[in-house]
Computed example of a mutant assay.
Amino acid sequence: MKIQVGDIVARHSYQCDMFFRVMKLQDTIAELAGEDMRLLADAPLKDLKLVTEQERTRKREQIKEVEDKSYRLFRQDAKLMKQRNEYEGSDSYSSEPAYFEMRGRVLHLDGDSFYLRKCTDLYQKLGIPVYGVHLQEKEMPEQLESLLEMVQPDILVVTGHDAYVKSKGDEEEVRAYRHTKYFAECVRIARKYCPHRDQLVIFAGACQSHFETLIKAGANFASSPERINIHALDPVYIVAKVSMTSFMERVSLWDVIRNTITGDKGLGGIETCGAMRIGLPYIDRRKSK
């Protein structure tokens, strides 16, 4: 069967370990984007295998199991944070909580529209205010400053697809990465806009991105310390933790990383304060009617 743009495929040369969407076809080469991982790859058409619906269903079930585990861990942490806030916002649990929360607002730039939808769905499920924008990675630096001025976010996510291309240089050369330079440029623009790392918290990177470059550019959190693939939803779990943590507290780096799907081999960061503010009093207009 002829392979077409939009098909789901796997690579024989990698034992069909990952599923990809065919993004573009050029002669005998296909440009691929990871179905669940933020990875770009090129592959000869002869190396590709069309994935059956049965195989996709089986893979989705495996991925969902991993995603559900991360979601449960995050909800457990969120519940503990809420209980602590209720204790501090009321008379030590002796009355109903009388506070309201202003969670950190997220501006999420994503190079993949499919992933952006998955991420915004999860943000909404977690109760995180978000403004999502789909842009090709190379277009992000051009649009970022105007978006920052319009949205006024507390947290910025700059992600999409990336990959280390061995033929372009060794692992220490930024030019050997497909999109790290665009992510790093975005971080520098954002830091010029807001230099303080606790006033604008930044996550940058995708699969195999050059972690050190992104951190040095000014990111609080980035991928990928060991140049491995990261899951599509990992940026959400990191910034959601920041969004739901009080600005008076530092976010525990270990707590942030352990709730992700990829873990500390694919994600890292620096000490960072939360972005949420608690206010008093909470007024329930429904009761006053």
Score class of each variant (00 low, 15 high):
Asp255Glu: 15
His196Met: 13
Phe203Asp: 01
Val133Arg: 08
Phe100Arg: 12
Lys69Pro: 02
Gln4Gly: 00
Gly111Ile: 06
Gln152Val: 13
Ser90Val: 06
Gln26Cys: 05
Lys192Cys: 02
Lys265Phe: 03
Glu145Val: 14
Arg286His: 12
Ala10Gly: 15
Arg285Gln: 05
Gln15Tyr: 07
Ile189Cys: 02
Ala78Arg: 08
Arg175Asn: 06
Cys207Val: 03
Lys181Ile: 15
Ile202Lys: 01
Asp17Val: 10
Gly266Met: 04
Ser252Arg: 03
Thr180Cys: 08
Thr262Gln: 01
Met37Ala: 09
Thr180His: 08
Phe19Trp: 09
Gln15Ile: 08
Ala43Asn: 07
Phe74Pro: 06
Leu80Met: 03
Ala217Met: 00
Asp110Ala: 05
Glu226Thr: 11
Arg38Gln: 13
Val22Arg: 10
Ser146Glu: 14
Ala30Cys: 05
Asp234His: 00
Val251Tyr: 12
Pro195Phe: 01
Glu226Leu: 12
Lys49Val: 14
Thr262Glu: 03
Pro141Val: 11
Gly132Gln: 10
Arg72Ser: 05
Gly279Leu: 09
Lys287Thr: 13
Tyr131Val: 11
Lys192Leu: 05
Ser146Trp: 02
His210Thr: 00
Leu280Arg: 15
Val133Ala: 00
Gln54Val: 15
Gly6Cys: 10
Cys194Tyr: 01
Ile215Lys: 02
Ala98Pro: 02
Tyr177Phe: 15
Tyr123Ile: 05
Met37Glu: 12
Cys16Ala: 13
Asp284His: 11
Lys79Trp: 00
Leu50Thr: 05
Glu171Thr: 15
Asp264Val: 05
Arg75Pro: 00
Glu173Gln: 13
Ser224Val: 04
Glu88Ser: 00
Ile128Tyr: 04
Ala41Ser: 14
Met102Tyr: 13
Met150Arg: 15
Arg197Met: 10
Lys59Met: 04
Lys2Phe: 04
Glu145Ser: 15
Leu107Trp: 03
Asp47Lys: 02
Gln54Tyr: 10
Phe114Thr: 12
Arg58Val: 03
Glu271Cys: 00
Gln124Glu: 14
Arg250Gln: 07
Arg56Asp: 06
Met1Cys: 13
Lys2Pro: 07
Thr262Lys: 02
Ser167Val: 02
Ser243Ile: 04
Glu171Arg: 15
Val130His: 00
Gly266Asn: 03
Ser224Asp: 11
Val158Asp: 07
Phe203Glu: 03
Arg250Ile: 08
Thr272Glu: 10
Asp170Ala: 02
Trp254Gln: 14
Gln4Met: 06
Asn229Cys: 14
Arg258Cys: 12
Arg21Ala: 08
Leu116Ser: 07
Glu61Leu: 12
Ser113His: 11
His210Gln: 09
Ser90Glu: 04
Glu53Asp: 14
Pro141Gly: 10
Lys138Phe: 06
Lys125Val: 01
Arg250His: 08
Val157Glu: 05
Arg105Glu: 13
Arg175Thr: 03
Tyr123Gly: 01
Met244Thr: 04
Ala163Gly: 01
Gly268Ser: 04
Phe74Glu: 09
Asp42Cys: 09
Thr260Cys: 07
Lys192Met: 04
Asn85Pro: 00
Leu135Thr: 03
Ile202Gln: 02
Arg117Gln: 12
Leu253Asn: 08
Lys289Gln: 12
Val165Glu: 12
Arg227Val: 10
Ala232Trp: 01
Ser167Asp: 06
Val256His: 01
Glu31Ser: 11
Asp162Arg: 00
Gln26Arg: 09
Glu139Tyr: 07
Val201Glu: 09
Asp284Val: 07
Val165Asn: 08
Gln124Gly: 13
Leu147His: 13
